[in-house]
C-alpha cells in the first residue's frame, strides 16, 4: 500500500456535529506500582463514532479499554459515560469514589469484545447469548431467545446455536462473542484486538462481521487493532498511543498518509505503510 493511495470510504462523515460525547476520558492516569501506563490521557468518543486505537505494544491501549469496562480502576482522572461519571458519584455536590451499585448502573452502556473471546465454556452458543439478557436485564426467556437467534443470524453463526464453544474455531468463537456483547445493546462497544488471537484464515470473517455492525452506527465503537488497513477502512478517527499518551489523532487519511510525529512515522513504517513524514 502506498501513501498516496486514495481510500474509498462508504460514509466519511462522522456524525458528531452538535452532539455531546458518549464517552469522555478526562486526564486519565493509570499506574501499576512504579509503572505509569497512562499519563493524563484525554479522549472523547461521540455517539455512533468509530475510533481506532493503534500503537506499539505496551503503550496502554488495552488499559484504556479495561478502565472503561471497569475491569481496572484509574489512578487519577475521570471517565464520563453518557453524561454520568463512571468511577465517581456525586454526593452532596462532591465527587466521591463510586460503589459497585453505581458501577452496575453505568456499566450497562458499555460492551466489550476480548482478544481471547472468553465465551462461557459450560454453555451452548445460544445460552451464552441468553444468559445476561435474562439474568441482568430481566428479559423473558422467549424474548431473549428470539433476539439471540437474530443476532446469531447477523454474525452468521445461527447454525451453531446448540454447539458448545470448544467445538468452534477461533473465528467462530469471536463472532459469537461479538453477538453476546451486542444483545446487551451497549451504547459503546470496545474491541480489544479482536483478531490477534486468530488463525490467519479466520481473521477475515471476523473483520467482515465488525464492518457489518459498524454500518448501523447504532453505537460508538472503540477498536484497538494492529490491522492498519482495517482501521483505515472502518474508523472515523484514529488515535495513536505511545508511552501512555495519545501522540497524534485525526482522520485515517490524514494520520496514515501524513503523520506529524516521528514516532508515528516509524510505527507505520514497521507495518509497511510509509507516510510522508512532515
Amino acid at each position: 500500500m502506498s501513501g498516496s493511495e486514495v481510500i474509498e470510504r462508504p460514509d466519511t462523515e462522522a456524525p458528531i456535529e452538535g452532539k455531546e460525547p458518549i464517552v469522555r476520558f478526562e486526564k486519565i492516569s493509570k499506574s501499576f506500582g512504579e509503572l505509569d501506563v497512562l499519563k493524563e490521557v484525554d479522549l472523547d468518543l461521540y455517539p455512533g463514532e468509530r475510533v481506532a486505537i493503534i500503537g506499539p505494544s505496551g503503550s496502554g491501549k488495552t488499559t484504556m479499554a479495561r478502565l472503561l469496562m471497569t475491569l481496572e480502576e484509574p489512578t487519577d482522572g475521570y471517565i464520563e459515560v453518557d453524561g454520568r461519571q463512571l468511577w465517581h458519584k456525586e454526593v452532596n455536590g462532591e465527587l466521591v469514589k463510586a460503589n459497585e451499585k453505581h458501577l452496575h448502573e453505568v456499566r450497562g452502556d458499555i460492551g466489550m469484545v476480548f482478544q481471547h473471546f472468553h465465551l462461557f465454556p459450560h454453555m451452548t452458543v445460544l445460552k451464552n447469548l441468553m444468559e445476561a439478557p435474562i439474568k441482568v436485564k430481566g428479559q423473558t426467556k422467549a424474548k431473549a431467545r428470539e433476539e439471540a437467534l437474530a443476532m446469531l443470524e447477523k454474525v452468521g453463526m445461527v447454525d451453531f446455536a446448540d454447539q458448545y464453544p470448544a467445538r468452534l474455531s477461533g473465528g467462530q468463537q469471536q463472532r459469537v462473542a461479538i453477538a453476546r456483547a451486542l444483545v446487551m445493546h451497549p451504547k459503546v462497544m470496545l474491541f480489544d484486538e479482536p483478531t490477534s488471537a486468530l488463525d490467519p484464515e479466520t481473521v477475515g470473517e471476523v473483520l467482515e462481521v465488525i464492518k457489518e455492525i459498524a454500518k448501523d452506527r447504532e453505537m460508538a465503537m472503540m477498536l484497538i487493532t494492529h490491522e492498519m488497513s482495517f482501521a483505515r477502512d472502518i474508523a472515523d478517527r484514529i488515535a495513536f498511543f505511545d508511552e501512555g499518551k495519545i501522540q497524534e489523532q485525526g482522520p485515517p487519511a490524514k494520520l496514515l498518509n501524513n503523520p506529524e510525529t516521528e514516532r508515528l512515522g516509524e510505527f507505520l513504517n514497521r507495518f509497511g505503510i510509509d507516510g510522508n513524514h512532515g
Binding site: M69, H104, R107, F114, H118
Partner: peptide, 10 residues
C-alpha cells in the same frame, strides 16, 4: 471479566 462486561453482579 466477561461476566463483568455483561454487567453481571458478583
Amino acid at each position: 471479566e466477561a461476566g463483568i462486561s455483561l454487567n453481571m453482579t458478583s
